[in-house]
Design a binder for these strands. Structure first.
Lengths: 166, 166
DNA sequence: GTTCATGCAAACACTTTGCAGGTCA
DNA sequence: TGACCTGCAAAGTGTTTGCATGAAC
């Protein structure tokens, strides 16, 4: 199931038009890859995927196109990892937040309407206009907390190396 | 008012001892600077501040000491900005989350007990053990939303350059 | 032929690593 | 002397920029 990639591509093409940019084969290939690759991807993953179809494409074009897609709000940038962003396509997704396992790197999505409401209320109280937000819980997932230290006080990194750290 | 820097330094010294590390003048200077510099600082800011007192200190030592302080949970890393982390001392602070103005770079702290509760509930539902979390709203602060476009759909960067972007 | 987009290489910013020298018991 | 720590320089990583080439109207 491709969760409406046609519609997402249509939005993308429309966005390109709106911004006065051409729908080049490279941009379309990048868009298609971004909408079909796994839901949280790095630039490098996207690049590798695009390369399979368009071997002559450059990393730079991926960066530039991603920036366009962000402007059009078709993807969002997530500052999960120290070196390098994770990207996430927006369309066809309900809004959600994330739990990130520090050991195995697993990403769990969750949604909570009450948090969204409280968040909006807090912003209103400060006359702050929210454009986007990022809410991420870092810790250990169901599996990793078993095989690992289980006291709350212990910091990550004390249980041996984890999948995402180096 | 220095919000208990003596106590924070004590915790730091204890943490160094616990980790089998020596309380060298460099480490202590970095600790002191970290606890007295503004509440969200970059490595560079901390480095410059430490340098005033200890001109011969190196950037590397700042990085290394910051890592120790993170292990001891005396500071936390915040992935607010694209290139480079922001650090925040923990002790003497009640827990809070952040609103970050994309135009002027202003950081507003807020706390909301109900969000914390819901967050804990969501984690429990997934058997996820939270070590830390990051909850940040990106948008425009009270002042910048006035002098700027005010439609929700417009993305950052369309209103002229902002303070933190380049 | 002009305009816009691409892709290489280089530049850039942040962080980590290798290693020689320094400090202190 | 030995253990640990520091600081320089270099390497590593992710991202952006400069510029010559290339494609499309």
């Amino acid at each position: 199931m491709t969760r409406g990639i046609g519609r997402q591509m249509d939005s993308f093409k429309r966005a390109l038009g709106d911004l006065g940019l051409e729908a080049t084969p490279q941009r379309l290939a990048i868009g298609e890859a971004a909408f079909t690759v796994r839901p949280h991807f790095t630039v490098e993953e996207l690049f590798q995927r695009v390369r399979k179809r368009e071997p002559r494409i450059g990393r730079v074009t991926v960066y530039r196109t991603l920036k366009v897609m962000m402007q059009a709000r078709l993807v969002e940038e997530r500052p999960f990892r120290k070196g390098g962003m994770l990207y996430e396509p927006m369309a066809g997704h309900r809004h959600h937040d994330h739990m990130l396992c520090l050991r195995c790197g697993k990403i769990i999505e969750f949604e909570n309407e009450r948090i969204e409401q409280e968040q909006a209320r807090a912003a209103a109280r400060h006359r702050f206009q929210i454009l986007t937000h990022s809410h991420t819980l870092f810790g250990y997932c169901r599996n990793c907390r078993k095989s690992c230290c289980s006291t709350r006080g212990a910091g990550p990194g004390e249980c041996g190396r984890n999948g995402r750290e180096r």
